[in-house]
Design a protein around this nucleic acid. Structure first.
Lengths: 108, 108
DNA sequence: TTTATTAATCGTAATATTGCTATAAATAAC
DNA sequence: GTTATTTATAGCAATATTACGATTAATAAA
């Protein structure tokens, strides 16, 4: 089928899944790390950083934007993509909430 | 194509991508949360918890196992799936390493 | 106005994922 | 041995993802 029935899960579960799914590609990880390392960015730069075509990089940027991990501002003739500070923090929080809800089990 | 060329990225980037990709489905998030909440588990229980068939749950468990987020031990006639404590900690660490490498940019 | 530059989108193809039913394999209970 | 129980796997169909080249749209430069 290939169709995830999101209505069967909680809002929280879907939020975490959407977030991690957006992170789940090395190119998108690479984009985020690059954005972090240089503090700001335009897409042209990224295409040179990545082993991908301009169209593919644009698609990955769109995915990151939809997950609100980055935001894009028009900067004259090009786009300035940046980490979305607010949602970056929230992403970290909800992930750590999950990680921290586990404390060594007494089984296995 | 649908084929990610992992050889074009760093080991670190691929590790993060593999981890987050494994987390990127609400059913797998739900499985992890359930495992955490009850400290131990057998698959039979899970099938009743989730809106999925036994076969599909088994597949998701396999994905989580391959990402080393959980481990399965044979427990008599059934399987005992648990959070993989060591790798759970590592997962948290490498994700936080990324999250913490960002500190509010001075752009946008 | 014409010509670059930049980034998004369209169309396409290959591969992956999701999910099911049916089946297999392994053990436990009878 | 036969029959349940439990989990994994095979096989299949539908949808999603990844990636590309080509095109579009918008602005800047000439």
């Amino acid at each position: 089928m290939g169709l995830t029935k999101i209505e069967h899960y909680t809002v929280e579960q879907n939020e975490l899944a959407v977030l991690t799914k957006a992170l789940g590609h090395p190119a998108r990880i690479a984009i985020l790390k690059h954005l972090i390392s240089i503090d700001q960015c335009i897409c042209g730069d990224l295409v040179e950083e990545l082993p991908l075509s301009q169209a593919t990089v644009s698609q990955h940027l769109k995915a990151l934007k939809e997950a609100k991990l980055i935001k894009g501002n028009i900067e004259g003739t090009s786009m300035c993509y940046c980490i979305d500070a607010k949602n970056w923090k929230r992403a970290k929080e909800i992930l750590n909430q999950m990680f921290d809800s586990y404390s060594d089990a007494n089984c296995c």
